[in-house]
Amino acid sequence: MNIVVCIKQVPDTTDVKINPETNTLIREGVASIINPFDAYALEEAVRLKEKFGGTVSVMSMGPPQAEASLRDAVALGADDAYLLSDRAFAGSDTLATSYTLAAGVRKLGGVDVILMGRQAIDGDTGQTGPSTAENLGCPQLTDIRKIESVEADGSIVLQRVLEEGYVRIKVKPPVVITVVKEINEPRLPSLRGKMNAKKKEIVTWTAADLEVDSKRLGLTGSPTQVVKIFTPPKPSGGTIFEGSVTENVKDLIAELKAAGVILGAGKGE
């Protein structure tokens, strides 16, 4: 089974702090990591390869420094790494990103499964998976929590999370699969993986290397434009009780009542 995992390099948001004066994110010195959801996708790909053979390639669209995340992915078990990087890709929204990624997957050729995380933790859109599938003309199955089995004919049986349960689905590759965190527990890089990552050649493809229409790339190929960015209004200071336990609870319940809320009123509904 030939798998490509599409990853995104994102800031490690556990480090993100807000500058209280300017109300903007402080990103200096913030480490870049593989989008955590993509790390689950990568782990799942490596497990599938261990069971069924084949290759795991990892691909990212981004600036040259995204190479570091691709090396991390090699350390975690990817066989090959591809960076789609070109100034013409800058400013891509999810439509242009998916178009570009799909062109990369096509150039790679012979791919059975395209795995991704359900969303990136910086943009939080979750649109790149479905949109890449559309560009590749294959089905997508999002929010997958378990790959149950791979049948003799190559069909994959998996579990897709829904709000009120899950649905079991059987699909024939090629297919785009996006995963939720529940699917596995990613491993740490092995020493051998780290050695591999150091010397691995990261293949870089520019727009000229891909079969693409330049009108559909980057900002030009992006129908959506961000016209304003602002920090959400800070909640005005709440009421904090710091007295004794009984007083605190009494005060809280009184304040809630004043706000029109009676705890326990909805009981048994």
Binding site: T94, P130, S131, L162, E163
Partner: peptide, 23 residues
Amino acid sequence: GTIMGRSLLPRVASRTRTGLTAD
């Protein structure tokens, strides 16, 4: 912005080649 909506709409938008804003 449900699991289905966030899977179906991106695909429709992509096929239509129009923009989609999530959530």
